[in-house]
Design a protein around this nucleic acid. Structure first.
Lengths: 208, 208
DNA sequence: TTATTTACTTAACGATGTAAAGTTAATTAA
DNA sequence: TTAATTAACTTTACATCGTTAAGTAAATAA
């Protein structure tokens, strides 16, 4: 049975090679420059070989997209040791925008590009996305059990908080604010706006 | 000189025809299906004619993108008569998300697609974008002069508020939340989250 | 009447995603 | 040991894309 095992190993190896090449090209040259042919060139296989390992181009990017959520989860890991949920929530906002700014292309793929979504639509569940969101949701719930955000729906509030930080990163990454903000304000706008969100959370809470 | 005038008129007419066709295709079939060839087919001209009126494909979408901002400004028009700036700010949030949800493809083009930005980068100023943002900025400043948002930077706060509502619309339009929210929460999530933002603004304000 | 300009088209290039058919080597069955 | 089968990969091909360069025919100017 060792022969079959070797083959299995080799299949996984090539799949990984494809993904590595795709990731490198994607991070270096962006989505548009990452074609099936470019990926194939880089690993010295014919373009159509890739279709033996992935359904289509979107499926390749779906795999990278999944990696992104794993990495985001890594970023969030240290926060698990912050016991005060309100502090954790505020720290989470900062970690989130930091992740986005340090991995802009990847963030874009995770949250704004259409590519991986067609592939995701076919899957039934989405563990990686759930994991990240549930960490936020859990934190919000703990805040509420300590008297914060009284009378608000935890899930809706989580979505709203997520929207806030996502909006900050997304406007910046997609370059919609450069022409509209003053030069001084634009510098470091993401961290300024994140601090603003934190302050808004601080000011609004009604702790009993 | 009437002959030159007629020619001028005809040029504008064809330019408009191109844009109308592009808009129709874009709204009906999305960005990917809107090719130069498809646009040309629809108006019964050869594809290359379009290049006599627009620099490249991005330039066509830049024009549509501009139209979008004009339309958004239309949506905001009635708010000019709301004298209380804090009420105006809250109404603006709702108007913004309504605009986005009623014009999802256009909103996407305005705030997330890369296409129009390459063309925009070459322009020096961006009146349409400025107009919309300044309406928000002006409102925030008026709020402050009435004692709201004490000690906060108006421009940064405007960007943050914009981020909040943009984040809400963008996550929904790009379909990143369907798989992650419960069915009940997902229904009408945009208006729920917008209401949440309004409530957050309400709760945080420290009016003297 | 001839020359020039304007408005448009035809033809072509290099690139894309992907399907179908072909090939070669490894494995299994006889 | 040999023939048949399967697995892994490639070659070829198609339709489409954005865009450039060269051509054409009609309108205008000289």
């Amino acid at each position: 049975m060792s022969i079959a095992e070797r083959k299995e190993r080799q299949k996984i190896e090539l799949r990984t090679k494809i993904l590595d090449a795709a990731r490198t090209l994607f991070l270096e040259q962006g989505y548009e420059q990452t074609s099936i042919r470019n990926i194939a060139d880089r690993i010295e296989y014919s373009p159509t070989t890739i279709y033996l390992y992935f359904k289509d181009k979107d499926d390749v990017f779906y795999a990278l997209h999944q990696d992104g959520f794993a990495l985001l989860r890594q970023f969030m890991r240290p926060l698990e040791h912050v016991s005060d949920p309100f502090e954790r929530l505020k720290a989470l906002s900062k970690v989130y925008t930091t992740f986005a700014m340090e991995n802009t292309e990847l963030y874009d793929l995770m949250f704004t590009m259409p590519a991986p979504m067609k592939a995701l639509a076919e899957k039934e569940e989405w563990t990686e996305g759930d994991n990240a969101f549930n960490f936020l949701l859990q934190t919000v719930r703990e805040c509420q059990s300590q008297g914060y955000f009284e009378g608000m729906d935890a899930e809706v509030l989580s979505y709203t908080v997520w929207s806030m930080v996502h909006g900050i990163c997304s406007l910046e990454i997609r370059g919609r604010c450069v022409k509209v903000l003053s030069e001084a304000t634009y510098e470091n706008i993401v961290s300024k706006a994140t601090a603003q969100v934190v302050e808004i959370l601080d000011r609004m809470h009604t702790k009993r």
